[in-house]
């Protein structure tokens, strides 16, 4: 059973990088360009995991995570956010918003996959 992952990021290049890393590892990947689109896709679809940037136009990542946690079908779906080492305060805020874990940017494809595996329980 292949897990399906939604990746939300306003940077197309980053979305591609994530997609390559994840599809190589055998996951199915869908994409969204901002928080609003991410929320819409997540609500409408069926994802095992969501990976999101925090700083995005239209709807930022924090608002998106908070909104997702209010959707019954999305409660319990792991959400991983992308953050930088320098932004320690953001980690706590994102966790309070309902995020499951984080990936520190810049990341190696391996470490991203490792974290995805960790959160999904293989």
């Amino acid at each position: 059973m292949t897990a399906t992952i939604l990746t939300v990021d306003d940077s197309a290049s980053l979305r591609v990088a994530i997609k390559i890393a994840l599809t190589t590892a055998g996951y199915a990947v869908d994409e969204a360009g901002d928080g609003a689109e991410g929320l819409q896709k997540a609500t409408g679809g069926s994802f095992d995991l969501i990976i999101t940037d925090l700083n995005m136009p239209v709807m930022d990542g924090l608002t998106m995570i908070e909104s997702m946690r209010k959707v019954p079908k999305l409660a319990g779906v792991p959400i991983i956010f992308l953050t930088t080492e320098s932004d320690a305060g953001m980690k706590q805020r994102a966790k309070s918003a309902g995020a499951t874990g984080w990936v520190t940017k810049p990341f190696q494809p391996d470490s991203l996959v490792k974290i995805v595996k960790k959160v999904l329980g293989k």
């Binding site: 946690r69 319990g76 966790k95 309902g98 874990g101 959160v119 329980g121 293989k122």
Partner: peptide
């Protein structure tokens, strides 16, 4: 709130 926030104890145990 760990379960709501997507943490999976089974995954932790597996790890």
């Amino acid at each position: 709130n760990a379960l709501v926030n997507g943490s999976n104890p089974l995954a932790l145990l597996a790890e």
